[in-house]
Every structure is written in structure tokens, then in C-alpha cells.
């Protein structure tokens, strides 16, 4: 991989993203909208749930609103990063292939796109953590933020893979919405999880580890090391899958 090539592609990728009005609107509006819905629909009534990655006995009682704010924060990161990552690999796919024909390698292009995505994930994570602070201060804010970053990494990698796989936007969006809605938007909510009949499926969905990091850090003093590693491995596997699909789609017969 040649650094000069990656830097040039990264610069262009960032410019493209900054010129996308819909991306900027989504970036600013979605988190605020999600938090507003939580504020309008929840109360401070106490609710109890178990932390799946800690112990079946670790029962925690917290404000319904606070739990929902962290949960919806994770959902916002997952949805936003996967949509924006989809855009990075799907849009201009044919022009990207022309770049490969002209001398880029697929790994250089993907590295540039991932760098753009990484910046985006940090931006969304910082924005969401700042919004969260307006309503309450979680126990370990930095680790909650880390959970947001991890959700962005896992779902961003998934978005890159889906974008590389499907040529048309509709299929890509459908695949993202289906998974994100079921996983990060529903099953990973500890309130649902606590009494779920089949926890095996939930534990193997992409948002399991990131949501455990944020929830555990926000409402307990337990270690988040295990879900942190789990999330990193999960995200790396999805990124590897994205790299393979992207490489296959961009292949050139030399």
C-alpha cells in the first residue's frame, strides 16, 4: 500500500462526503431527533435489567429515561455509520473501478474509505456523547463513548460490505435497515434482552458487544474488557469481509 495514493483518495473521499447535503443533515438531525423522541416518551421511573456480558445475577435498577438515552445513542451511531459507509463503497463504484484500472489498488481505495469512515465515527461519537451530557452524566463517560465508537466500527464495516456487495441503493438500504432495526434498534435493549427466550441469537448479532460496553460503563462499575475485545474482533471480521467483497467487485485482469 502506498501512503501517497491513500492520502489522495482519502482527501477526495472527505470532500465528497462534505458535499453530500443529505449526509450532513442525517449527521446533525438523526441524533437530536432520536434523543427528542426519548425525552418525549419516557419518564424517570426506575426499571431493572440484567447486564448480559457481566453476570446473570448482575441486576441493575436505573431511570428508564437514562437507559433509553444510552440505548438510542447506540442505535443512532449504528444507523448513521452504516448508511454513510454504504454510501462510501456503493456510490461511484464504477468510477472507483476505473481508478483501479488506472493504477490504484483496491486495498488503497478501501483504506482511504475506512479512514474517512473512522473520522466520521469519532465525529458522531463525540456529538452523541455531548448530547447525552445535556441530560445526564453516565458513570464512565469515556467508556460509554468507546461503546459508541465500537458500534460505529461494527456497523460501519457492515455498511462498507453491503455497499460493496449491492449495486443498487434500494437493496443496500434494505439490508441495513433490516439488521439495524432488529439488532441495535430492538434486541440489544437490555430491557428486552433480560427476559428474551433465545439469548444465543442476540449475543451473536453485531451490536451485542458495543451495547454491552456502553450499558455496562454507564450504569455499573464492572469491567468492559471482554465486550470491548469481542466488539473489536466482530468489527474486524466484518471489515475483512468488506475488503474481500470490495476486492472481488473491483478486480481487474492485468
Amino acid at each position: 500500500m502506498r501512503l501517497r495514493y491513500i492520502t489522495a483518495a482519502w482527501r477526495m473521499s472527505v470532500r465528497e462526503l462534505l458535499r453530500s447535503r443529505i449526509a450532513l443533515i442525517l449527521f446533525l438531525v438523526i441524533p437530536a431527533l432520536f434523543f427528542a423522541v426519548i425525552l418525549l416518551t419516557t419518564t424517570h421511573k426506575e426499571i431493572g435489567f440484567k447486564l448480559a456480558s457481566v453476570s446473570e445475577d448482575a441486576f441493575i435498577r436505573v431511570s428508564q429515561r437514562r437507559e433509553a438515552l444510552v440505548f438510542i445513542g447506540l442505535a443512532a451511531v449504528g444507523l448513521l455509520t452504516s448508511f454513510l459507509a454504504l454510501n462510501l463503497t456503493q456510490k461511484h463504484a464504477a468510477a472507483n473501478r476505473r481508478l483501479v484500472l488506472c493504477g490504484y489498488t483496491t486495498s488503497e481505495l478501501l483504506a482511504a474509505k475506512f479512514l474517512t469512515l473512522a473520522g466520521l465515527i469519532v465525529g458522531i461519537g463525540v456529538y452523541l456523547s455531548s448530547l447525552l451530557l445535556l441530560f445526564f452524566r453516565p458513570g464512565r463517560l469515556l467508556l460509554v463513548f468507546l461503546g459508541f465508537i465500537l458500534a460505529g466500527f461494527v456497523y460501519g464495516s457492515y455498511g462498507l460490505m453491503v455497499g460493496a456487495l449491492f449495486r443498487r441503493e434500494l437493496e443496500g438500504i434494505l439490508f441495513i435497515v433490516l439488521l439495524a432495526n432488529i439488532d441495535i434498534g430492538w434486541l440489544q435493549n437490555p430491557i428486552y434482552y433480560a427476559d428474551a427466550q433465545n439469548k444465543f441469537i442476540i449475543r451473536h448479532l453485531p451490536a451485542y458487544f458495543p451495547s454491552q460496553v456502553s450499558m455496562t460503563a454507564a450504569f455499573s462499575g464492572h469491567s468492559v474488557l471482554a465486550p470491548l475485545w469481542g466488539g473489536l474482533v466482530y468489527g474486524s471480521l466484518l471489515l475483512l469481509a468488506a475488503a474481500l467483497v470490495f476486492g472481488w467487485k473491483m478486480r481487474i485482469r492485468k
Binding site: 477526495m12 470532500r15 465528497e16 481508478l99 488506472c102 493504477g103 490504484y104
Partner: peptide, 20 residues
């Protein structure tokens, strides 16, 4: 096969980078 969210000049720069 060009990048329509970039300017003409940026497209030239992008492909110049690709050609090395």
C-alpha cells in the same frame, strides 16, 4: 465514469494520483 460530487479539477487530481 467520473466523480460527480467533485469538481473537474479534483477529478483530474484524483486520476493523476491513480496514474502515479
Amino acid at each position: 465514469l467520473v466523480f460527480d460530487t467533485l469538481t473537474v479539477d479534483e477529478n483530474f487530481a484524483y486520476f493523476a494520483a491513480a496514474y502515479g
